[in-house]
Design a protein around this nucleic acid. Structure first.
Lengths: 245, 245
DNA sequence: CGAATGATTGACGAATATCAAGCTGCGTGG
DNA sequence: CCACGCAGCTTGATATTCGTCAATCATTCG
């Protein structure tokens, strides 16, 4: 029995090493979606999977950018720091997101796991070789970068010109929209990150975020459920609250 | 004489139509730098030059993205609006900059000339065909998008976490750095945009920008010269003022 | 020269930060 | 299994930065 099990495990291992990506559950929502099975196996040959615990650092701003990542599960925050410790979170990544688009010599920001995270790791040099080999992968990366730029511009509008309430509501709606993209329900949404993370993402303090949540709850726009879940009661109203219209 | 001049003009025109890009003065600082002369002439065949006066709109957020541009001269501002008119300027473009990286179906932002602007205009569809034809052009575009993402993240840090003074100083330094990149002196710098444009770029009001300039002038960090020029008196001090270090 | 547009300066107010104190929920160990 | 402790969240009182409103000044352009 034990011998049989061992043989079976070994066989599965071999097939995984051969092409683990083929059966990847988030394949369709990541950059890998543009690759066929044989191309995926080339990609798998340079990839290693990795698990990361909450609060663990994945990349450090300023370090040589030797690794690129694909998030296969969990939530990651990207951030930049000022010398005195002030922090700006520039984005949250979830399953299917690519980490390391700014393929400059050094990472332009740090990344840390918010929850338990699983990811695929690629040596940058070999990944870039793959880009030359598969032009459609490069095209896809340009597409992703393009979308991130659009998001970044939205975030600049939020940070520079929205009120605290508009910021928080915009955040809730954006999380809801990403849930829809993943095929989940638009409400309730899950907020795996802390109030302080939300604050640093929106350019606010934890106190202001907390007060704003309370305020939205009182006005009936949202409901706070156990397990860091938030129900968006009236998304039309919320949409108006998000841009002062 | 007149006939000679005419013939000469016509000849020059023909050569320009043949390959005007080859002699383009900003060729080396734009995406065109990666193309050789024959490739440039393919690019020239889909390009049209255009002049734009100050305050004239170049693209409108939400419109179908049918044209892409290369700025050959002058200054352009990119911005997004909220329904009630609040405005966030997401960037300024100068000679050599590419406009339209977010090649989505619709423009994600508006663009308006700040000064007299000259530019090259490409139909998006034909430009994308060129990307397939010249992989190095696509690679270059990814490179540019990547750099813009880094800049966008810096701007998020500025908007979300810096004080008014730090914002203004960071802005002055970034303009100075771009001048260096263009081969100009780091000081004095030229600020072709209005105080109100600067305010909308930094998430401030014109009054606060004005007061901050006055304040920096009093403390001897800058000098305001005629013609919207600003001299950066002590760039080390300014660098410290830009991030609270 | 005068009108208009943009820049500066001033007085005041409001939104959000800061400082401080409880509260809640969850994991841990007795 | 329950109580304890701790980290994160909420709430309150006050402070501060920056925005708002308003007036003056400067500069350009007809």
């Amino acid at each position: 029995m034990a011998a049989d099990e061992l043989r079976f495990a070994r066989k599965r291992l071999e097939s995984d090493i051969g092409n683990p990506c083929a059966a990847c559950s988030i394949r369709e929502m990541s950059i890998c979606a543009v690759l066929d099975n044989s191309e995926l196996s080339r990609m798998a040959s340079i990839a290693r999977t990795q698990s990361v615990s909450p609060r663990q650092t994945i990349i450090d701003e300023g370090e040589p950018a030797e690794l690129l990542f694909n998030i296969t599960g969990g939530a990651v925050k990207l951030y930049k720091l000022l010398p005195d410790g002030r922090r700006q979170i520039t984005g949250f990544l979830f399953q299917g997101d690519f980490l390391g688009i700014a393929l400059n010599a050094e990472y332009a920001y740090s990344a840390e796991a918010v929850s338990d995270v699983t990811l695929c790791r690629f040596p940058r040099v070999r990944f870039e070789a793959l880009l030359d080999e598969f032009p459609k992968l490069e095209k896809q990366l340009l597409e992703v970068a393009s979308n991130e730029l659009v998001q970044a511009q939205d975030q600049m509008l939020l940070l520079g010109r929205k009120t605290a309430r508009e910021k928080v509501v915009s955040f809730l709606l954006s999380v809801s929209e990403r849930a829809i993209q993943r095929g989940d329900a638009p409400s309730p949404i899950s907020l795996p990150m802390s109030r302080s993370d939300i604050a640093d993402y929106l350019g606010l303090t934890t106190e202001t975020v907390s007060r704003t949540f309370t305020n939205l709850k009182s006005s009936g726009a949202i409901r706070l459920l156990p397990g860091n879940m938030v129900e968006l009661t009236d998304s039309d109203t919320l949409r108006n609250l998000s841009d002062g219209s």
